[in-house]
Design a protein around this nucleic acid. Sequence first.
DNA 1: ACCTGAACACCGTTCAAGT
DNA 2: ACCTGAACACCGTTCAAGT
Lengths: 197, 197
Amino acid sequence: MRADARSNHERILAAARALFASDGADTQVDAIARRAGVGVGTVYRHFPDKDALMGALVRERFIAFNEQLREAISKGEQQPFAALCEALRANSTALAEDAGTRFAFMRGGERVFAHAHDEVEEYLALTNVLVDRAKRAGSVRPDFDVADVPMLMCGVCATIDAGKGGAGWDWRRHLELVLAGMAAAVAEPSVTSGGTP
Amino acid sequence: MRADARSNHERILAAARALFASDGADTQVDAIARRAGVGVGTVYRHFPDKDALMGALVRERFIAFNEQLREAISKGEQQPFAALCEALRANSTALAEDAGTRFAFMRGGERVFAHAHDEVEEYLALTNVLVDRAKRAGSVRPDFDVADVPMLMCGVCATIDAGKGGAGWDWRRHLELVLAGMAAAVAEPSVTSGGTP
DNA sequence: ACCTGAACACCGTTCAAGT
DNA sequence: ACCTGAACACCGTTCAAGT
């Protein structure tokens, strides 16, 4: 790729992240092109459509998530559950600081996540290392599954977004309640008896 | 309101719910009008814009939520935590069966929820009755707050939607983990020490 | 190879004319 | 009072012309 093309590629992504963050659903491709200092056609040369732009943001985020997970894996051998919690806190904090990517997470559908397929697979594999260790140590409920992690994190992400919008919710609280639910604590009879078997 | 106008009003809402459910973000106002058997202008006569249409769906849903809460309040005097859990399960199940309203919940912003302001207030007041009873009974963590309920339910709603879209997530599982986190269980030291104070 | 931006297509919203 | 739908405005995407 030519040097100017690579520079355009990066500037378009940065512009998209900034504008999705500030304008959300009102973000226009024209505005992204203008902010990146290129013509609209150039945006479409680098990213086939708006979904691909959002997909690229999601992909970058998962690459960063995976880096944080690798760090937790290498540092947290002695306290597996604490390591898992710290990794999820680190992931959430990063997401909380990146409203543009959050927009892509929440508003992009399957088509958007498809652009990050490999990175999501790696995310699950790395998370599984942490979950598995914690389960062996007996500090996570035995019926907990790796697939529960993105499910619960999707909920935290929804709270981050809604929380900034006037509702005044605290995603850190949401995350801590979720971590408490993961822990191998003695749940009340009424909880464990009432749910899906 | 004239009888034909009231009938149109209801048919437009039903058409919107059905089309938001099947077409999501691709739902066109023209299509809603066609399905309701009216002209576009009539849609705009009843609902000033698309947000108002979504807001009406949200409003109807909260009215139904509140009915379910009142039922749980009147039936669950003896087992306050079980009553709270049952109410949240009933709310979630209703939402899981109404993809059109879910779309409005997730994609509508503050402007959409503003159309249901009073109903949301009542929802919080009714939920507080259940939470308060359970806290007095010692079965919900003492630091739990009513405002945590919509926050956590927002997460469950995100899972319902994402779960139907190929990810294969089970919102019932999400809800049960959330209920376990609400319970006054003995959390691991590593959880309680690491979060926001 | 890559870039540009005018032109096209699509859809939310309005409003003059109708009952 | 309420309804209709053609017309307008706006924005995602394309593509012929340029470097």
